[in-house]
Nucleic acid binder design. Structure first.
Lengths: 201, 201
DNA sequence: CGCGACGTTGATTTGCCTCAACGATTGTGG
DNA sequence: CCACAATCGTTGAGGCAAATCAACGTCGCG
């Protein structure tokens, strides 16, 4: 695990990429964020419980997932270093959450609760700007995923994921990739086998 | 079609619901927005062409859709009165668009180009705030849709849509609903038939 | 070492797609 | 005002991609 200083450096680096910050502006945010280690398998949000925090991942990997009535998991989002993750519904409304968020690797996160988040946006307009831009980018990515899910075959969706998120495919267990794509682990195994054969010939 | 004044009233009404505005603040935005009628079937964005505008719908109904290599349409989003719609990728980057946006009914929209949009957000911080909140709400809705698409059957997705967007299901042609759900019109027809029978018995 | 989780492979089933035909509705030109 | 074409929703028959169920080898870990 990295030093707390390094965690904040990572955050500043990522914010500055979209919105340059002065030292003072960044300081306003560090005082509101709680550094935390999350061990592999540990949760930062659980369905049915209010999830107060928005998390910035400084190291490791987390996932957000829902559970259907058959008890199967369905991964809605992965978050590697430099990504934000939360149960947005619960974060915004304060109501019980709709999904689980846990760590797939030993990870480090910076947490901010919704009250502090609103205060930060209201006080430092550059942060409001930063999150507006971040959410716009997320809008593009998520709408692409929706389009893929209604227009592509399982194999095409896997190839698209390999293209867009090669790192995730490398680091995460295959059954989690399958879950993210909306298919069974067996189906993904066969798809990979098919791709191997074709690319060899 | 409604009077231009009414179109701006509708916008103000919707913005104020999230962020109260003074007359001056709202004025800054009216001067940047272009009112326009969009006849049924007319486009406000086309794939491959840069789409400069973000649109607020004051009346009628629009849709955003992509076309796959077989030539089939896949609807990513509907927008009724009070909704915003754009090809966000093209709007943000200025690059050629990824989808088409056209009107399903005679409609009225207020258009703002990306330059004016950025200026508005930079000048009037309440608008930046408004869009940040709007995008957060969109985040919740779109992630729910993703979860539905990877975890629910076609019938369950249809029932969910009936629950969340009953107005859209009423107003829009069935094949468009099918397209939005990622199924064929035939499949939707059979699903509806099955539901009718069950609810009658 | 032995247990459990994971990925693979095979056999079977199934939900939805594809293709085709049909009636109902809409709108269009003569 | 009516014939006509076009579009839409429905229904049926057959096919296919992916799910399900089951068995097996491998690996990491207690």
């Amino acid at each position: 695990m990295q030093d707390v200083r390094l965690m904040f450096d990572a955050l500043r680096e990522h914010v500055s990429r979209l919105v340059p910050l002065t030292d003072d502006e960044f300081l306003a945010c560090t005082s509101l964020m709680i550094p935390k280690r999350v061990r592999k398998g540990a949760y930062i949000a659980q369905e049915g419980e209010a999830s107060k925090y928005l998390a910035f991942v400084t190291s490791g990997c987390l996932r957000a997932y829902g559970i259907d009535k058959k008890g199967d998991e369905h991964i809605v989002q992965f978050a590697l270093e430099g990504w934000w993750i939360t149960d947005m519904y619960s974060f915004l409304t304060g109501k019980p959450g709709e999904c689980f968020i846990d760590a797939l690797e030993d990870s480090g996160v910076l947490l901010i609760d919704s009250g502090s988040f609103e205060k930060l946006c209201a006080t430092v307009s550059k942060f409001e700007r930063y999150f507006r831009i971040l959410l716009q980018n997320n809008y593009v990515a998520t709408h692409r995923r929706v389009l893929a899910s209604i227009s592509l075959s399982a194999e095409e969706r896997y190839l698209q994921m390999l293209d867009i998120y090669p790192t995730i495919v490398q680091r995460v267990a295959q059954r989690h990739i399958a879950s993210y794509l909306g298919i069974t682990p067996e189906a993904l195994s066969r798809i990979r086998q098919r791709i191997m054969k074709i690319s060899k010939s």
